[in-house]
């Protein structure tokens, strides 16, 4: 698989390590009343779809950036690659 890095261009997927569903970006509020439930959902449960899947890849042997890759789990086709920091910022997180 070739991942089209937003800064570095097309890179071999072997340069990356895989973390999993991009929902891992959305860490729950530890002070919420149902924080234990939320963290259980966040940590252990997954949609695991057959089809389009947003997922986190880390460019370990490159610029060490985290990417959100939209990839089809049935065909392995990659349709979109974003910097995870951009995605988080768009959701109003961090600086």
């Amino acid at each position: 698989m070739i991942i089209n890095h937003p800064i570095l261009g097309p890179r071999d997927a072997q340069e990356f390590t895989y973390l999993g569903d991009a929902s891992l970006l959305n860490r729950p509020d530890w002070q919420a009343n149902d924080a234990a439930d939320q963290f259980y959902n966040y940590q252990y449960l997954r949609d695991n779809p057959a089809g389009e899947h947003r997922e986190l890849w880390f460019h370990e042997q490159g610029d060490r950036s985290w990417l959100v890759v939209t990839r089809n789990t049935v065909t392995h086709e990659i349709s979109k690659v974003e910097l995870a920091s951009d995605v988080a910022r768009k959701e109003g997180r961090s600086k």
Binding site: G20, D21, N41, Y44, L45, R46, D47, N48, A50, T73
Partner: peptide
Amino acid sequence: GSSSRLMSKAGMRLPMES
């Protein structure tokens, strides 16, 4: 292998990835 796909039809999310 396809547990998540099947059980999603019963509204369940599973602690697994395929």
